[in-house]
Amino acid sequence: MRNGFAVFFAVVVALGGSWLGFVVAPTVQLGKAKQALILNSTDTWPQQRTGEATLGLQVYRANGCAACHTEQIRQDGVAAEVTLIALNKTKPEDFKAFVQSLFILPELAKVTNTLAATLNGWKGDLPTTILVTDDKAVADAMSDRLKAAGVKSETHIVATGEDIPRWGIRRSVAADFLYDFPVQLGNLRVGPDLADVGARLPDANWQLQHLYAPTLSVTNSAMPSFKFLFDVRKIGSAPSPDALNLPKQFAPADGYEVVPKLEAKELVAYLLSLRADAPLYEAPFSPITSAKP
């Protein structure tokens, strides 16, 4: 390269390419995204957050919560789950013998080992999941046989992966963040993922207590305490209905109460509005739960 123009050309080619790819293309692809339809339903997803929760997102941003929490659940794939609901008149031993008789079927060849292992440890308690497979055809074949044998079973589609079901029941998808600004996906999990925290921990009082004194509900929590989001004040003529119910070692002095400030209430409203629990075309699962909070 012999002159400045050559360098300019190199930059335009290299950075321009990635600019078109990683800035313009996603904007075109996702810029006109609309609400998605929830599977087997006429409801749309996501719902606009309430006003309080929208303000809570700004509290979340201002305090840099995304420095330690992600809002993205990952998923490896989906699996079909065959669950035994009722044996009707069949005895557990007879059922075991029946399933063993199915092992010669070619369509079940892939899962005979796991089936045998599951049945070995089974003592007849119901309902029980007898088969988890990533092949929907195998699950369907199995449930057809069970139906023919006169026992009641259900087949579910479930998401699989390390984050599931610990932090959510399906992966996060682009649609979940349609109305957010700023989108707080986060890059680091010092604490747990929060994409589905509203469905996982729906108790507002628990959330407030956790913000006030994280070690109260999680021993050895590394989360800093957000006491500055609360007022400690003298109890007036009657205790405030908002006052936190705290155990002895976290409670303020006698005659005082801990009351959440507006920011704390907004933040909790936002946390409770964080849900990823509607089955969508791109993240299916069953049974279908209601999308309405």
Binding site: L15, S18, F22, V23, P26, T27, L30, G31, A33, A174, A175, F177, L178, Y179, D180, F181, P182, V183, L185
Partner: peptide, 18 residues
């Protein structure tokens, strides 16, 4: 007038890397 939804995150990651 930001871009919509996760496009914000994508552009943010692109910027961070660059």
């Amino acid at each position: 007038w930001p871009v919509r939804g996760v496009t914000q995150a994508i552009i943010n990651w692109w910027f961070a890397d660059n």
